[in-house]
């Protein structure tokens, strides 16, 4: 016991475990990077191949030669219409449902069933939504193939996103705020309107942006409910059929022959720029939300 002990050194086994852990860590990082390479790769390819075709006239002209030449103006406007109408349908419904679920619903079988339905609605394949849109909106409700039918289909599809995003931001508002408000004699609804909603605006906006992303990007649900292959003029009412960016991209890549290689890439780049900038906005909102949450 009086001999001078040797200084602390990892045993061979401990050193081995440490090396192994470093190796595993590196392996996982590599796989993660491998997963993310496509994001940058896709962006790179799209920019290299598509950017040269993106001139002002590309955005502002009508398509010609079935889309093999000319621009994308009607598709651009059509996508804006589709998205806007989808938002007008999905947002009120979704926010109302979220308020009900977060503020009024008790934890009973009905709430559980609703939650289950929301989860399932989110998992339904987009082509099934398309079939539903055809059956329900185009024929049963008699909207015909129109912006209205297509937007309603998109709205149903994006509803779970709105509900979940809004509900989460509502639930993030501390209970103490609510109780303080109730103690002042405010009704439940007054509390929600004055305290809860203003505090969860970022969450609602995030939901809104995600809806826009989905609505802009989806193809299958609008293919049979309101999108058309070619239409020279921008739509003027919700009962018009319309071109859309996503569907246009699908047709110029698969249906039309002799399309210059740059055209689909340019359309894809436009689409992805819209979607990514929207997403960046959503991420920014969320960070702001998280920053503010240090009440």
């Amino acid at each position: 016991m009086t001999t001078v002990p040797s200084p602390f050194l990892p045993t061979a086994h401990e050193a081995g475990a440490y090396r192994w852990q470093s190796l595993v860590r590196f392996l996982f990082l590599s796989l993660t990077v491998l997963l993310l390479v496509p994001v940058l790769g896709i962006l790179g390819v799209l920019v290299v191949e598509g950017a040269p075709a993106m001139t002002p006239s590309f955005f502002l002209d009508k398509p010609s030669k079935l889309g093999a030449a000319g621009g994308i103006w009607p598709a651009l406007v059509g996508t804006i219409w589709l998205t806007a109408v989808a938002l007008m349908v999905a947002l009120p419904l979704g926010v109302a449902a979220a308020i009900y679920l977060a503020e009024y619903a008790r934890d009973n079988w009905l709430t559980r069933l609703i939650n289950l339905a929301i989860v399932n609605l989110a998992g339904v394949p987009s082509i099934v939504h398309a079939l539903f849109g055809v059956g329900a909106f185009v024929y049963f409700l008699g909207f015909g193939e129109s912006i209205l039918a297509a937007s309603c289909t998109l709205a149903v599809m994006t509803l779970p996103v709105v509900i979940v995003a809004t509900r989460e931001s509502l639930q993030a508002v501390p209970k103490a705020f609510r109780e303080a408000c109730w103690n002042m004699g405010a009704s439940r609804w007054q509390t929600i309107w004055n305290i809860v909603l203003p505090n969860s605006v970022s969450g609602i906006l995030t939901g809104l942006i995600l809806v826009v992303c989905r609505a802009v990007g989806e193809t299958a649900p609008i293919m049979f409910t309101g999108a058309v292959f070619l239409r020279m003029v921008a739509p003027e009412s919700v009962f018009d059929r319309t071109m859309a960016l996503s569907f246009h991209l699908y047709t110029v890549s698969t249906q039309v022959t002799e399309v210059p290689r740059a055209i689909p890439f340019a359309v894809a780049l436009t689409l992805i720029l819209v979607v990514l900038s929207m997403n960046a906005l959503a991420i920014w909102f969320r960070m702001k939300l998280r920053g503010r949450k240090k009440w």
Partner: peptide, 19 residues
């Protein structure tokens, strides 16, 4: 220092902790 090593210079913290 733990057993003659400054713990802030030990890279293999797991070994330190296992002792």
């Amino acid at each position: 220092t733990f057993a003659g090593r400054d713990v802030r210079t030990i890279r293999n913290l797991y070994a330190l902790r296992s002792h």
